[in-house]
Amino acid sequence: METMKMLIAFDGSDNSLKAVEYVGNIARNCSGCKIVLLYVERLPDKDRFSDDSAWEKQCAENEQNIKLKLSEAAKKLVSMGVHHEEVQTEYFASCKSPFHETDICSTGRSIGMDILRIREEGGYGTIVIGRRGVSKAEEFLFGSVSTKVVQSAVGCTVWVVN
């Protein structure tokens, strides 16, 4: 029997937590699942900080906060009946991050495209993503990660949880 592999795009928002709960309700007591909670790092704009030190401090705080939220989301899945060995978290760092030196990293150009690349490389059959809740005007001007994933996904199932 083939393992069901699901990738939950997680950003710590209420909608990404709804996506976690949705998966928990579907995958509870399912043996042979692999569920990965994925966060793709988006670094804060350096221009908003007085110097590199202040920016690096904020980057470190952001990473610590999201890793805590990832851990809490994984615990939520387990509390809903998903086996703990079937749940993983991944923090996908930006190549420009001051703390990570890795060859495998986010391009920083498009979180949606990074999610799709990770899905393909990992062989995940399903992507689960929360809808951010931006207005149509904001989505038109700035884009939306969930919209990008839905429009560009090939060869997989995408669940958008609202």
Rank of each mutant, 00 (worst) to 15 (best):
T3C: 14
M6T: 10
L7P: 02
I8R: 00
D11V: 03
S13G: 11
D14S: 11
N15S: 15
S16H: 01
L17M: 14
V20S: 01
V23M: 06
N25W: 09
K34T: 09
V36Q: 11
L38K: 02
V40E: 03
P44Y: 01
D47E: 15
S53R: 14
A54K: 13
C59M: 06
A60S: 13
E61R: 14
E61W: 12
N62G: 08
N62K: 07
Q64V: 14
Q64Y: 10
Q64N: 14
N65L: 12
L70R: 09
E72W: 07
A74V: 00
M80Q: 03
H83L: 06
H84I: 07
T89F: 09
Y91N: 12
C95A: 11
P98L: 09
F99Q: 12
E101M: 15
D103Y: 11
C105N: 04
T107D: 13
I111N: 02
G112W: 01
D114C: 05
R119V: 06
R119H: 04
E121D: 05
I129E: 03
R131F: 05
R131Q: 08
R132H: 11
R132N: 05
G133Y: 02
V134P: 10
A137E: 14
E139H: 09
F140E: 14
F140R: 15
F142V: 12
S146T: 04
S146K: 00
S146A: 09
V149W: 00
V161R: 00
V161A: 03
N162H: 12
N162W: 07
